[in-house]
Design a binder for these strands. Structure first.
Lengths: 222, 222, 222, 222
DNA sequence: AATGAATGAGTATTCATTCAT
DNA sequence: CATGAATGAATACTCATTCAT
């Protein structure tokens, strides 16, 4: 069964919160809460200090500016977001030829895993989503993460599936867009847009996978 | 050729900006620019006044509060967003049975039209997107617009296509999600996430439509 | 009965509101209301305009400044306040010698009449009272009215009563202070400090007069 | 001679300004000055900050709002105003029967002491006087202080004097009004209305006491 | 005469940040 | 390390007053 070993790699890797003093932890927690509740610009450091139970000055001992605090929260999240794609055995596994249902398994693993991840890190992801358009720094980080990791990894995988005939021969750029759009669209709808609707996650994931597979199979009722 | 009349209805309806004094127009324009550049909370009324070329007090003669100004910008946009679905002949046309390629035409018309719309109203849509999570008022408006107009209209249409056998028999809720997610995902990627990439809009729209149609056809390579 | 003629003189003299346009009247009424409710400094011209049902600009067509409006309200009141002392027959009458109970009648007439007056002009008097300490102009007007009219008239009368032996031989300055303090103190208590207590005005006036008369008689239990 | 001990109790009790930082003290001093010069509403926090020699923000670190600052100034004054009536030995002493000139001594002590007090706290008393009509909070405090302390204490004393036959048998409510009106009237005239006149305080106090005593003796020249 | 849009200085209050303790 | 008093620039909003219509 070690042929499923790569699935395990999808799990969180080193989520080492490093050595943060308890006060520093409290500050980060409070900041995440408040930033995600009211948005970065509308949050005040004094409120964060109050909720963290520290003095106003303490925040600035650890983070030079409010903007610094935001970055400190958000940056370590990038790695976590793309964790599965960084797993050593991940790509290798996908490339084992002639596996039945390989594309399907891949999508299911990815979607399931990232949904769980998003559930766990909801507030930070909300902050990220909200602030990327306004913080040049984050925008650049996003671009480099996307092009250097997400895009190249997915491209390899997609092209592999295309060679296997699992996926239609569209430009990989387009295929990647479809997959990400559908996957992220599901997660966003599930967690941000209609979190209160009644969801059967397992079933909805299956529908979504089928939608992607059919959509990319390039064959219609003949 | 009047069987394509409904397509024309997709075009903007009355976008009368009502009777705004020139100063008021300047204020709105400046506000839209600045809100979309820095976000609502990070925008200052003094900067808006400066860019609009009016005194700061003038803003508050027309809009009681900064929040009021935001609402005044954003609310009239709701109607414009759902304009096509409100068109009288729109649904009627879709329901004419036995039309070949009907679902495809529907998706193409919708996607093309809403992309054009989004291109024209980029900054306001950005504001809307950014502020819905933080402005209770906007959240409520979104919910009611979605459930009362978008969802019900699309549901009728989807069920019609399902009866015709064009679309697989999944819950209409799920089908609507796929279509919206894919369509909106395309528009967002095109205009917000990677606006600077090289896009062949026409072709990309065709790919997207094929993706949706195959994805919802329920048939795979046989 | 013409020996009581002077009493009638105590009544309002020319309360000619001059020729004020209806809008002007509305403005004055609104200003009096609002100034007395919130104080001059805390009242805004825009609120006055709103309550008067006129445009903001209209106020400034009639009164150069907000301060001007205050003065226009308050100045004509000075004359009304000292009306009784200005009555031609008033002093003459008091000087008719050998009238029994003359001092008592004088005090009763004065007190009754000024209480009625104060009841009728409560809001304006409140404004006057509140603003004298802060408006140099009003302070000066008060001083000149007091020294030129109130003080001199009362002095004559008091000295007359002293010569008749009705009143003790204290400095008239002191006697005037006692009378005014007691009289005004009664009116203020009655109308401003404890307006909601149950008052039997007639009886309370009698007590007050007796208090002044005994107090100034210079005789104690012997 | 400990029979005059209660007189000493009339003196200020604990006027501990608590532990105020020097900046806080400066702020309070400046605020008292400016509020009493121009009135609360017409005073600006920026002017207070300037005169106190602190940054404007510093005011709001110590007092949440401008209104808060007013209250912080004015509230501790209530206790000081009624200090003599709170003195333990005060009432006891008054009640020692058969003392010659007891009522007279009482009035003299009260008047002298409160005049000194008013001289020392002129500006705060001016603020209090001016703002009671506009600050609901102060109005309520005044009412409760008056009914719970001033009125009840004076009533006991007045009724005691009435039983001794020192004072006429009018309703105590009325007697209290006469005494307060005359006393406060004297202090106001002395300090607020004609502060620049030439006053022989000792003599004027004696006249005022005689006026009250005669006025309340209920006996006239027979 | 009357309007009300426009002004810009002024308002109370908040903010991120500094620094002496 | 941590505090919290202090800062002063910035904020949203109000105001008395002007002026073209």
């Amino acid at each position: 069964m070690q042929d499923k070993e790569w699935l395990e790699e999808l799990l969180e890797m080193g989520s080492r919160d490093e050595k943060l003093s308890p006060k520093q932890k409290k500050i980060l927690e409070a900041a995440v809460e408040i930033f995600s509740e009211k948005g970065f610009a509308a949050s005040s450091t004094s409120e964060i200090a109050k909720r963290a139970g520290v003095a106003e000055g303490t925040i600035f001992r650890h983070y030079k500016t409010k903007h610094d605090l935001l970055i400190s929260i958000v940056v370590p999240t990038w790695t976590k977001i793309i964790t599965p794609l960084l797993a050593k055995s991940f790509v290798k596994e996908v490339f084992k030829k002639n596996q039945y249902n390989q594309a399907e398994d891949f999508l299911r693993a990815l979607l399931t895993n990232r949904l769980e991840f998003a559930k766990k890190h909801l507030p930070i992801l909300k902050i990220l989503l909200q602030e990327i358009p306004f913080q040049e720094e984050l925008k650049e980080q996003f671009t480099s993460i996307f092009t250097e990791h997400i895009y190249v990894q997915l491209q390899k995988i997609i092209e592999h599936f295309q060679q296997q005939g699992d996926i239609i021969d569209l430009p990989s750029k387009t295929v990647i867009r479809m997959i990400l759009t559908t996957g992220i669209g599901f997660i966003l709808t599930r967690l941000f847009i209609l979190p209160d609707a009644q969801w059967d996650d397992e079933q909805e994931i299956e529908h979504t996978i089928q939608f992607m597979l059919y959509g990319l199979s390039g064959k219609e009722d003949s």
